[in-house]
Every structure is written in C-alpha cells, then in structure tokens.
Amino acid sequence: MVKLDKIYTRGGDTGETSLGDGTRVAKSSLRVTAYGEVDEANAVLGLARLHATPASDTLLARIQNDLFDLGADLCVPIEEAPKYPPLRITQAQVDWLEAQMDRLNADLAPLNSFILPGGTPAAAFLHQARTVVRRAERATVHLLASPHEAVNRLVLVYLNRLSDLLFVLSRVENGQGAGDVLWAPAANRDG
C-alpha cells in the first residue's frame, strides 16, 4: 500500500532519485527516463479523457491504471530473489489491449491515406498520447539494450500495443473515422 503523507523529501535535490527497490540513481538514468515518459503519456491520456465519449473514457481509465502498473514495473529492476514480489505487466494486460483494438477496429473503414493528428479534441489528445507512448517505447528499447539493466520485456510489448490502440481510438473519437484528417501528399509543393 502506498502512503504519501509528505510530498517533498529533499532526496532529489542533488539530481538523484530512489527506484522502487531503494536503489539511488541519477534522474537522467535510462530507467528514470523510461518511466518518466510513461508518466507523461498518462498525463496526456487524462487530457483526452476530458473530451472522450463515455465508452472511450472507460477504456482510458483502465489504461491509465495499467500505465501506473507499467511505471511501477520499470521502477523496480528484475532481481533473482526479490524481498517483495514486484508489480509486473502481464500477458493478460497485453491481450486486453489487443482485444479492445480488434473490437474497435472492426467497425472502422480501412484507411487509404495516413491520418494527420486532429479532428475532435479527444482524437487530437489521443494522437498526442500515442506519440508520447512511442517515445516511452523508444526509451524502453534503450533501457533494454543496456547490459546492466534487467527489464520485463512485456513492458515494451504493452507500449507497442498501446500506441496502436490509441491510434484506433482516435479514429473512433473522430466519428468512427468520418472526421479523420487525411494527409494529402505533396499538396503544397507547388506553392
């Protein structure tokens, strides 16, 4: 159980922070960068929820909770015999994302063009969240490539699926794709 009775600790005043296992690391570390990007994505989803339909809001609420799980996963390096069982992203969470994407995408017309971020406010924020999730995914790839870091690989899979789901959900929020803003290649080349 988390208990926060004091918000500031002064522990980070020197540019370091504590991971979930108590290890002190630089705030610029790959691990802190990765879960910081996840935190930013979660904040953008909060903005999207302000404009989302009730059905989308329900999905996004669950995703926000899962992103806290994912941040907790990244915050605790994998160890052989942990003192306490850490929170880890599971295949079931990835499977849920895929099921939602398949269900929502079934009612959307196929695309014949790339989509520009925009349309409704909810769709625009979902596109922004998608790009932040992609940034979190890239940060996680860097973390996974580090020889001294142990990371749950399902974190990367979850982020990859989530960015795809957010794309589909943006189309749903754009009137089932009717309000998508389509890219017009080379539309402005000739002045």
Score class of each variant (00 low, 15 high):
Val25Arg: 11
Ser28Val: 05
Ser29Gln: 05
Ser29Arg: 01
Ser29Gly: 04
Leu30Tyr: 10
Arg31Val: 08
Arg31Gly: 07
Val32Trp: 12
Thr33Glu: 15
Thr33Ile: 10
Ala34Tyr: 02
Ala34His: 03
Tyr35Ala: 03
Gly36Ala: 14
Gly36His: 13
Gly36Tyr: 12
Glu37Ile: 00
Val38Phe: 00
Val38Leu: 00
Asp39Pro: 01
Asp39Gln: 04
Asp39Lys: 01
Ala41Gly: 09
Asn42Trp: 06
Asn42Lys: 10
Ala43Tyr: 09
Val44Gln: 15
Leu47Gln: 05
Ala48Met: 07
Ala48Thr: 05
Arg49Ile: 10
Ala52Lys: 04
Ala52Thr: 06
Ala52Val: 05
Thr53Gln: 14
Thr53Lys: 13
Ala55Cys: 02
Ser56Val: 15
Leu60Met: 14
Leu60Val: 11
Ala61Ile: 02
Arg62Phe: 04
Arg62Cys: 08
Asn65Trp: 08
Asn65Arg: 12
Asn65Pro: 01
Asp66Arg: 11
Phe68Tyr: 04
Phe68Met: 01
Gly71Arg: 12
Ala72Gly: 10
Cys75Asp: 13
Cys75Lys: 02
Cys75Phe: 01
Val76Pro: 02
Pro77Lys: 07
Ile78Ser: 08
Ile78Val: 14
Ile78Asn: 11
Ala81Asp: 15
Ala81Glu: 15
Ala81His: 15
Pro82Ser: 09
Pro82Gly: 10
Pro82Ile: 06
Tyr84Lys: 15
Pro85Tyr: 00
Pro86Gln: 10
Leu87Tyr: 12
Arg88Phe: 06
Arg88His: 07
Ile89Cys: 01
Ile89Val: 13
Gln91Asn: 09
Ala92Trp: 05
Ala92Gly: 11
Ala92Pro: 06
Gln93Phe: 03
Val94Glu: 10
Val94Met: 00
Asp95Tyr: 00
Asp95Lys: 03
Trp96Val: 05
Trp96Lys: 09
Leu97Pro: 12
Ala99Ser: 11
Ala99Pro: 00
Met101Gln: 13
Arg103Asp: 15
Arg103Cys: 13
Leu104Ile: 08
Leu104Phe: 15
Asn105Ala: 14
Asp107Thr: 13
Leu108Lys: 09
Leu108Pro: 08
Ala109Met: 13
Ala109Cys: 09
Ala109Pro: 11
Ala109Ile: 05
Pro110Asp: 09
Leu111His: 14
Asn112Met: 00
Ser113Met: 02
Ile115Thr: 07
Ile115Gly: 07
Ile115Asn: 03
Ile115Tyr: 03
Gly118Met: 06
Gly119Ile: 01
Gly119Asp: 07
Gly119His: 02
Thr120Pro: 03
Thr120Ser: 15
Ala122Leu: 01
Ala123Phe: 05
Ala124Thr: 04
Ala124Asp: 01
Phe125Glu: 14
Phe125Asp: 12
Leu126Ala: 10
His127Ala: 10
Gln128Gly: 10
Ala129Cys: 06
Ala129Asp: 06
Arg130Asp: 12
Val132Gly: 07
Val133Cys: 11
Arg134Glu: 03
Ala136Tyr: 08
Ala136Asn: 11
Glu137Gly: 02
Glu137Ala: 01
Glu137Trp: 02
Ala139Gly: 00
Thr140Gly: 05
His142Asn: 14
Leu144Tyr: 04
Leu144Arg: 13
Ala145Leu: 07
Ser146Trp: 10
Pro147Phe: 08
His148Leu: 00
His148Lys: 08
Glu149Lys: 10
Ala150Trp: 00
Asn152Arg: 04
Asn152Thr: 04
Arg153Gln: 11
Arg153Cys: 01
Leu154Glu: 12
Leu156Ser: 14
Leu159Asn: 02
Asn160Gly: 04
Asn160Ser: 03
